[in-house]
Design a protein around this nucleic acid. Structure first.
Lengths: 106, 106
DNA sequence: TCGGTATATATAAATATTCGAATATACTAA
DNA sequence: TTAGTATATTCGAATATTTATATATACCGA
């Protein structure tokens, strides 16, 4: 069923650390060791999250000598992240507006 | 933190039933009772899923007499669903292609 | 081949999510 | 006010996810 597959992809995306990884990969490919510092997490945990993203087709990996380089598998993931950023901003603006209205009505 | 908020929204989306609900709401607003038949689920469960979608800002509800009508809170959610459909199709196509290449190489 | 670096995996405990069943609430019409 | 319909909430058991820790694997240079 289509919805099951899409739900799996969304679950893969739906974690703060994995979103941070995708923000990094939006800029271009990165090896694991380059992600450790910005993510401030231990290597095992980062590898676990990368494995989830890879398993559900969000990223792909290529080994180059010492390093494993990851990148987004489909540029549409970057578009989705952008849309979510915009949704979040609009949501927060609407909350602010609601608060203002409540104060006015008081 | 931005990623926590976005992860929450994505978790709200990341369920087969909730995706089916959003597919229905893409067409326009629907009351709960109109969703029961296409979803083939009991009313309590559908209300639970709607509560999650509402709590994280994906849908909004308006009471009209007997019924509670739900709709997407932001049209960008429909765009995200469309992008995910396309990603899924491309993913499945790539899988097919990989299989074909394996068979050819054998 | 050996030592060291980069990355991956297994396991288990803690935590979160899901669903059904039961119950509660809200509204309408009579 | 009462009966009936629509919707929401609560709770608990089953299941899934997350994280740390420990360990494994893969590769390079000496």
């Amino acid at each position: 069923m289509k919805e099951e597959k899409i739900a799996e992809i969304l679950k893969a995306l739906a974690h703060p650390t994995r979103l941070k990884i995708l923000e990094l990969l939006k800029e271009g490919e990165r090896c694991v060791c380059e992600m450790l510092l910005p993510l401030k997490l231990n290597q095992a945990n980062v590898s676990q999250h990368l494995a989830i993203l890879k398993h559900f087709g969000v990223v792909e990996a290529k080994k180059k000598g010492f390093y494993v380089y990851y990148r987004l598998r489909n540029p549409k993931f970057a578009e989705i992240l952008k849309a979510l950023d915009e949704i979040l901003i609009e949501l927060l603006n609407e909350e602010q507006e609601t608060l203002r209205e409540l104060r006015r009505a008081k």
